[in-house]
Amino acid sequence: MPSRVQFREDRCKGCLLCVQACPSGIIQQSSRFNQQGYKVAEVPAERMAECKGCAFCAIMCPDFAIHVFKTKEAA
């Protein structure tokens, strides 16, 4: 049951509270700046498979900048 995190980079302010919250430790600050000048959070592609879909990152995000997806077997 793979999961994934999607960052809305235009909303991210680079506060990194999500980094602190992620139990898998897969979120990091990227070297990219968004239009507001913040270095946005990201999950490196090679580590996305470790995402458990717990959404702790989204729960701690003050900017509604994170979406988390889970994939289920069709019923």
Binding site: A55, A58, H67, K70, T71, K72
Partner: peptide
Amino acid sequence: MQEIRVTNYPEVLV
């Protein structure tokens, strides 16, 4: 296989 979004921001949140 079906992907569902775990995060659901309420509509009232602009």
